[in-house]
Design a protein around this nucleic acid. Structure first.
Lengths: 151, 151
DNA sequence: TGGAAAATGCCAAGAATTCGCAATAAGGAT
DNA sequence: ATCCTTATTGCGAATTCTTGGCATTTTCCA
């Protein structure tokens, strides 16, 4: 497994931010970095606490502000889990969500592990609706392994 | 177009509610009825005002409570629009969402107008993940006809 | 039809999110 | 490398959104 230096990581985020017209800042890099893992979907408070636990000082209002800004430019995704809790997702590999109706858990499914079922329908949707579509996300609703047993 | 009597409507809702173990009440029927239309995705406040405008007295906390209850049993769907506003969807025909990154608008796309692209992948997802999936919703992200022009 | 259990709705309480603003940091220009 | 303009941060207050307590009303089945 190739080692990635901090500088490389930083410049990768710097570029992603510049591409969407945002400045690179430490809080932003840390938020993006925190979110860019599989199955990580924190609430704003959880993200805030998570960063502090890593020893990073950051303000809660900065967290809120940046979650908004990063969502607006499409770098992260905001959603409600099945219990109605607001969560954020910044995992950069294309993926979908499994959401458990019973316990509320949300798990990622990599798009690369599934056939390409979405790509062909996007042009159809565009044609039918006259919208311009640049991405699509699926939420699969049901029961996780633990909850499906106890029913 | 066949005429549907109020009694029939009421008993249809009564049955849907009983199927999920909930009592039939007037507030519930009115909420379900309000939401069961294409392209209707109100916030709790909008739903509350909408019902009052129809002349129905209802409490705001009753609206909140029932949105939760109905979501928990799967009769309605709760989501965030691209601007981060919490909205509800109770349209009973299977459909997906188009969401505009620019203005935040959300529009429904009937599943019946698209090929059956989801059904085949659900068993695959179940196999890969070991979850039990009972439904899937797609959010297509992009730009609506109005916003795509001005870019 | 009686009555236990569930639901409603008012208002207060509590959370979550945003705002105002002074201080700081970023990054293009010099 | 340093300056200078502008964006960003982060604190605490203000606001908005959502839930809780509880007396009253409804539901529905025995």
């Amino acid at each position: 497994m190739p080692r990635i230096r901090n500088k490389d990581r930083a410049s990768a985020y710097r570029e992603r931010l510049r591409n969407v017209g945002l400045r690179h800042t430490l809080p932003r890099e840390r938020i993006l970095s925190f979110l860019d893992r599989k199955n990580v979907h924190p609430t704003p408070e959880e993200l805030y606490q998570g960063l502090r636990k890593k020893g990073y000082a950051i303000g809660l209002s900065t967290v809120y502000l940046n979650l908004q800004v990063l969502r607006d430019v499409g770098l992260i995704y905001e959603f409600k889990d099945p219990k109605g809790v607001t969560r954020y997702d910044g995992y950069s590999k294309p993926h979908h969500h499994l959401a458990c109706r019973s316990c509320g858990r949300v798990e990622d499914v990599l798009a690369s592990e599934l056939p390409e079922f979405l790509e062909p329908v996007i042009p159809e949707v565009e044609a039918k609706s006259n919208w311009e579509v640049d991405s699509a996300r699926v939420t699969f609703l049901g029961y996780c392994p633990r909850c499906k047993r106890s029913r």
